[in-house]
């Protein structure tokens, strides 16, 4: 099991403790509030992913062959999901990120937020994370 999969299992375990959607959302809102803030220098149009509804900023940098992501959103629920995604993908190797999937989001009952029609920028964010991974992997090869 890759380390990304392990983290995803942990997240699924955490969410399985909640009885209803309200507790899940309250937890997610807390995660959103505690998300380490992206350096303000990266909160520019160069790093923005425009959803129709909420904005997402993503920045990536490579250290010791691992990619470190920081991100932010103007909507707190979106930010909560970003926190979950960053926990799963940040600090991982490019190849592991390329190979990973996001099915765990379904399992924790947040599937609706990753629907391509949701227009909250999250689908594009995952695409962006994968693109960074492909780009950094190319550098390593």
């Amino acid at each position: 099991m890759s380390s990304i999969q392990k983290i995803q299992e942990e997240i699924i375990d955490e969410f399985s403790m909640f009885d209803d959607w309200m507790q899940r959302y309250e937890y997610m809102i807390d995660l959103g509030k505690s998300l380490p803030l992206i350096n303000e220098a990266y909160k520019t149009d160069d790093y923005i992913i425009k959803g129709c509804q909420s904005k997402v900023w993503v920045h990536a940098q490579m250290e010791d062959n691992k990619i470190h992501f920081t991100a932010d959103s103007d909507a707190i629920i979106t930010k909560g999901i970003i926190a979950i995604l960053i926990r799963a993908f940040s600090g991982q190797s490019p190849q592991d990120i390329i190979d990973a999937d996001t099915a765990f989001i379904d399992e924790i009952g947040l599937k609706e937020h990753l629907s391509p029609t949701r227009a909250n920028g999250l689908v594009s964010m995952i695409k962006e994370i994968k693109l960074y991974a492909v780009a950094y992997q190319t550098q390593l090869n």
Binding site: W21, M22, Y25, Q53, S54, D74, A75, I76, I77, T78, N120
Partner: peptide, 13 residues
């Protein structure tokens, strides 16, 4: 300062 998207999401629930 609450984002409208967040309010809409909770109301939908």
């Amino acid at each position: 300062e609450i984002h409208p998207y967040d309010i809409g999401t909770i109301l939908d629930k």
